[in-house]
Write a protein that binds this DNA or RNA. Structure first.
Lengths: 148, 148
DNA sequence: TTTTGTATTTTGTATGTACAAACAAAATTA
DNA sequence: TAATTTTGTTTGTACATACAAAATACAAAA
């Protein structure tokens, strides 16, 4: 296993970098996810946000931003948009804001779960269930460690 | 191993979704990468682009967008900015554009490699070399499969 | 009660990125 | 050679996202 056997390719520094490879996959999977969610009228990020709200009506924005691992400012914009579409509503309670699903929001729940399911089927078909699961698990644990 | 033993948590649908987990890690590692590259005056994406140009002077935009797995339109914007900073220059050749590093660009090379190295050290410290390497490899092979 | 601190949210601004459409050059076909 | 198709690039526009600073509101101390 000498150096002559595996010549260093020019672009290896890309393939070996976690930053690059993560973002590369992010672009690919986001494309797939957008497609799978096209029928819902929402992008996947919003879909997941609504599902959290449906699952815990009255959840605060703080909690939402933590569960989604996005910054509070981003969350504010997301909720703004969902409120405009009348899928959720805010109730201010002192300095915290609680978010509730509207009836229309609740009705969207099954459609959203459906889209998630289709997305999962799509990528599992390309990657295999093994790799998908393994990768997903690694990603979660790595995120937790890096977020500290 | 019955259902009572592992109660489904509300937010499991997030943790189990490759779309979500990938983007979550993407946000975390991008934050780290931005820090590591702060000294270079460029964000990591631009840094890698320059390194490719230094490694293959005259590389076309098409090739660059393929190696970086970004769309041609995004690449155009990147090269625009690097040209403004006088780190690369374009030479139009028919309908293709060839990109060359300027002297200033070449000089930046070592600094960029340094930053990449520091980035890698940083995340390996948090994740361990094992996991980092394994994950990176999985990410590359998954991307290849999903990009088809 | 006023002040001072702290936590939550919002706003201003910037970046990376995509898609679709426009454009321009080259290659193919008639 | 003229017309058509393909390929590479650019531009317009939009979205997810972040950070830093401002606003808001409660809590604790003076």
């Amino acid at each position: 296993m000498t150096d002559q056997m595996k010549p260093e390719k020019d672009e290896d520094f890309l393939q070996n970098c976690l930053y690059f490879t993560t973002n590369r996959l992010s672009r690919a999977i986001t494309r797939m996810a957008d497609e799978a969610f096209a029928t819902t009228g929402l992008t996947p990020a919003y879909g997941y946000l609504i599902r959290l709200v449906i699952g815990s009506p009255g959840i605060t924005q703080k909690e939402l931003s933590e569960k989604l691992s996005i910054t509070p400012s981003t969350l504010t914009r997301f909720v703004d948009k969902l409120e405009t579409k009348q899928l959720v509503e805010r109730k201010v309670h002192g300095k915290t804001v609680m978010v509730y699903p509207t009836e229309k929001g609740v009705e969207l729940g099954p459609t959203l779960r459906q889209a998630s399911k289709k997305l999962k089927q799509n990528y599992e078909e390309l990657l295999g269930k093994e790799l998908s699961d393994q990768l997903t698990q690694y990603l979660t644990s790595s995120s937790k460690q890096l977020e500290k």
